[in-house]
Amino acid sequence: MDVFMKGLSKAKEGVVAAAEKTKQGVAEAAGKTKEGVLYVGSKTKEGVVHGVATVAEKTKEQVTNVGGAVVTGVTAVAQKTVEGAGSIAAATGFVKKDQLGKNEEGAPQEGILEDMPVDPDNEAYEMPSEEGYQDYEPEA
């Protein structure tokens, strides 16, 4: 019985440690998101679009440190934060509304985080759909 109880105690310690790591990862992701939003706020009209992409990228980098179902929630929060940063930029006159959601080359930025393969159960990952990809044929 002692062996059984000791095993359960060790398992509990492992769960607590994993929860603490997840909590730490979420806190880091939130900190990076805040950094990115402050970065966007300090940019001029020309830099705002690039700044919004930076927020998304920093958040995406930190999301990889967070495991399990938390990833889905962090990704949703990050996307809403990026959308909010863009709205703030438009409201303050840093950028025109028609410039939001495009990178410096004018290509749409939507789907940055949505296409990231995420499995809350950590069982399997699927690649994003290939609808947006084109076949590449090298020139002879």
Rank of each mutant, 00 (worst) to 15 (best):
V3C: 04
V3L: 13
F4M: 00
M5F: 11
M5Q: 15
K6Y: 15
G7A: 15
G7V: 07
L8T: 00
S9M: 08
S9N: 07
A11T: 03
K12W: 15
K12N: 00
E13P: 00
E13R: 01
G14A: 04
G14E: 11
V15E: 00
V16F: 11
A18W: 13
K21N: 02
K21C: 03
K21W: 14
K21P: 00
K21Y: 11
T22E: 00
K23P: 00
K23A: 13
G25E: 03
G25H: 05
V26H: 00
A27N: 09
A27G: 07
E28N: 06
A29D: 00
A30Y: 04
A30M: 10
G31H: 15
T33Y: 15
K34D: 00
E35Q: 14
G36M: 11
V37S: 01
V37C: 09
L38V: 08
L38A: 12
V40W: 15
V40F: 01
V40C: 08
G41I: 14
G41E: 01
G41M: 15
S42K: 06
K43T: 03
T44L: 15
K45Y: 01
K45W: 14
E46N: 15
G47N: 08
G47A: 13
G47K: 14
G47S: 10
G47P: 02
V48Y: 14
V48H: 00
V48T: 01
V48R: 00
V49N: 05
H50A: 13
V52T: 03
A53I: 08
T54W: 14
V55H: 01
E57Q: 13
K58M: 08
K58I: 13
T59H: 01
T59I: 14
T59K: 01
K60W: 04
E61P: 03
Q62T: 10
N65F: 07
V66W: 14
V66S: 01
V66C: 08
V66H: 02
G67F: 14
G68L: 10
A69Q: 08
V70Y: 11
V71N: 04
V71E: 02
G73A: 15
V74W: 14
V74M: 11
T75H: 09
A76C: 10
A76R: 04
V77D: 01
V77I: 08
A78Q: 01
A78H: 03
Q79F: 14
K80Q: 08
T81I: 15
T81S: 08
V82L: 13
V82N: 02
E83C: 06
G84Q: 14
A85E: 01
A85D: 04
A85C: 04
G86A: 05
S87F: 11
S87N: 15
S87G: 02
I88C: 03
A89S: 05
A89G: 02
A89K: 09
A90Q: 14
A90T: 07
T92V: 09
T92E: 08
F94R: 01
K96Q: 13
K97I: 04
D98T: 09
D98L: 12
D98A: 13
Q99M: 12
L100D: 15
L100W: 11
N103D: 08
E105F: 06
G106D: 05
G106W: 12
G106Q: 14
A107G: 09
A107L: 11
A107T: 09
P108V: 11
E110C: 10
L113D: 13
L113N: 04
L113F: 07
E114C: 05
M116E: 08
P117Y: 05
P117C: 10
V118S: 10
D119P: 13
P120Q: 08
D121E: 09
D121W: 02
N122G: 04
N122P: 05
E123T: 07
A124K: 06
A124D: 07
A124P: 05
Y125I: 06
Y125N: 15
E126V: 07
E126A: 06
M127Q: 11
M127S: 11
S129M: 06
S129L: 06
G132Q: 09
Y133S: 02
Q134G: 07
D135E: 14
D135H: 09
Y136C: 12
E137I: 11
P138N: 09
P138L: 02
E139P: 09
E139N: 08
A140Y: 12
A140K: 09
